[in-house]
Amino acid sequence: MTAARPIVEARGLWKRYGDVAAVDGIDFSVGEGELFGLLGPNGAGKTTTISMLACLIAPTSGTIVVDGHDCLTEPMAVKRTLGIVPQEVALYPTLSAAQNLAFWGRMYGLRGASLRSAVDEALELVGLAERAHERIERYSGGMKRRVNIAAGILHRPRVLLMDEPTVGIDPQSRNHILETVRRLNDDGVTVVYTSHYMEEVEALCDRVAIMDHGKIIASGTVRELSDLVGGLDVITVVADGASEADAAALKGCEGIAEADVSDDGLRLLAPRGGSALASVVRMLEGRGVRIRSLTVTEPDLESVFLHLTGKTLRD
């Protein structure tokens, strides 16, 4: 999948804050037209990486080249190539969506008729054309996020950096946003998409890098990553009252490779999922955990993360 000409290249990227290495020596490249996912839990270093790509913060060491321009020496050229959708909604709450977008369009040099049509098209794309003249502060959280995206794509950037654009919003807005990202990518926009929702990244991205503690612990297509888990099956336990101690106890069981607490129970990896089920049930009932359901599935990105770090990707 790296056949396409790389449009974003990061080499030996490193960012320290005091003793913390927010980004701890990462290398990756994104091909033109690719939808590249950066998956990792809270504090993994996703936002720090995006900020360095956008020339907002200088790396402690390492280089970033975007479309042939070095971030350090030609930041303006890099900034013109990029669009950014920050993790927080970065808009003026008392101005309307149209006023906000007009301002951001002007910051990217759009004027007059081309500005007006860019604003209209961006609002159309995120499905908020009818509410263009309402103040941002009156919008719902999901709608604000959609305008936040519109502000990033208005000037038709060749590369769009999106930092967790769907965090904390309703499923309807989320689907709308994912659909928008797909359409932009179909139109040829290269997208770097960070998230800690593995289903999202799995469904959306051509290629994924998994980050944890500032490092890229694995990268490749979803298929390649799933293969890392090898012959392991995923056992998803939905249960009330499962604790870290239960996970630790299961890890000690024969036939269980990994176990960790998840949002609604436990997630396990086992070489032969089907035959491990009986001992899982016995063990958990013995520990007083009320199991509500048990499923065995093929490996997904979540299981890759669990396999590589021994942790689940939780909020």
Binding site: S51, A54, C55, L56, M76, K79, R80, L82, I84, P86, E88, V89, A90, L91, Y92, P93, W104, M107, Y108, G109, A151
Partner: peptide, 14 residues
């Protein structure tokens, strides 16, 4: 605080 500053810096504006 609201990161609009960051967004301005991300734009090609000195």
């Amino acid at each position: 605080r609201e990161q609009t500053f960051m967004r301005m810096i991300a734009a090609p504006v000195p």
